[in-house]
Design a protein around this nucleic acid. Structure first.
Lengths: 223, 223
DNA sequence: CTGTTATTCCATCAACTACTGGAATATAGT
DNA sequence: ACTATATTCCAGTAGTTGATGGAATAACAG
């Protein structure tokens, strides 16, 4: 009885470790984070990460063996995506644990996103309240495809590259709230810095889309 | 700017992967789960897992390097514990993802805990409601030390080994709810099987203590 | 100071992992 | 059928990890 239950435990832990091994590589974590923003082909991933196609493919095989990603063929290319929401909230929590436990993480973030500390972020519940009142514009500054594959309900898409050209779309009378991929994403801080220089009232949303989704808040998709 | 932000991303992912690597080994996951039930000395862990002391020590060094565990010296022995609650909820979620994504996990559980499927578990919120009414007895069937280092507020401790001798402490008029370490722990199912043979009305609590704690529900500690 | 117990350090070996470049496969277009 | 593109498969190599046994360290009890 104890023999078989010890056996069960060890078999079970071996299975758990398959998931752990999948997220034991910085490359695979990067891939997973990208895939949580929307589906991508192998070479789109290679371009986005600077890895060789072969290498990306190999990492995707391993993620696939751990069933963390799913694929879909369309003509000559194959699109990968995160297998489901629990996977994305898991990698999000992985980042949260790293942030909580490893002082290096805060330090790195502080070094590179210098002004992130100056402005304190708007909480998700606060944004939700404001959305009802209509005195707030929410801007998704990620690339357009990521917006298309899922965004905060009511947000408009202005990718960071286009922001300079599209300032007139934003009202000076309302509060502009920007968000992007997560707490360490540099897009929203850069967007807000630009907007503030032009005299807009701005706030950053705390964290990013994955956390909004994990909290079960309303998502829309399509352009 | 893009250069330095790519650099940030890769440094960050390297840090995240430190956490991933820590949970990439079945042994280390087993150790973490034990440590989430309460602090233990190195050789207590070695005895509980069947590993050599040297090996346990080495794994603990790695967990410690990822700052997932903390230690405390008491005389000649050193007690390790999970560094904080987020660590425990992270390993709990690791298990949940494995269960969700890897069919082998359900299969293993079904094979070994044969009757677990027959009785559907009591939800946490249901138990909470019943606790207010006083028609329910909650029994923690884990070893005494684990009960002492944290248990559901209002639960009594009857370790599985002692259950046969202590049946008279339980009323036949109330519902007996047992719990243990988690969804794959065999202690509670065995306890309930015994109790049902003796004519008690029983239910199993869904999951176990780590999940109760992660849900922010009331915990007590001490004997 | 000596012996005992608990833990960590160190060296070693086998097993595994990450990346690379080149070959093979699959789909679509001509 | 032929070509181009996207992806995967296959070897080879360098580097890393996991387990083991023996030596070193640290705290304590006599």
């Amino acid at each position: 009885m104890t023999a078989t239950s010890a056996e069960l435990r060890s078999d079970l832990h071996e299975q758990f470790a398959r998931i752990g091994k999948a997220v034991a590589s910085p490359r695979r974590i990067e891939l997973l984070e990208l895939l949580c923003q929307g589906e991508r082909s192998v070479d789109a991933l290679a371009r986005a990460t600077g890895m060789t196609v072969t290498n990306v493919s190999q990492h995707l095989q391993e993620l696939s063996a751990a069933r963390l990603v799913a694929r879909r063929r369309d003509g000559t290319r194959i699109y990968y995506r995160a297998a489901d929401d629990t996977v994305c909230s898991f990698v999000t929590e992985l980042g949260a644990v790293a942030r909580e436990r490893l002082p290096e993480v805060e330090r790195l973030a502080a070094e590179h996103i210098d002004d992130s500390t100056k402005m304190e972020p708007l909480t998700r519940s606060e944004l939700l309240r404001r959305l009802g009142r209509g005195d707030t514009v929410v801007v998704d500054v990620r690339p357009m495809e990521e917006y298309a594959s899922g965004h905060i309900a009511g947000a408009i898409s202005i990718p960071l590259d286009e922001l300079g050209r599209r300032l007139r779309e934003l009202p000076k009378t309302k509060l502009i709230v920007a968000y992007c991929r997560g707490p360490f994403c540099v897009l929203a801080p850069q967007a807000l810095a630009l907007l503030r220089r032009r005299g807009f009232r701005t706030r950053r949303l705390e964290d990013g889309l994955p956390e909004w989704r994990a909290a079960g808040l309303p998502i829309a998709s399509g352009s």
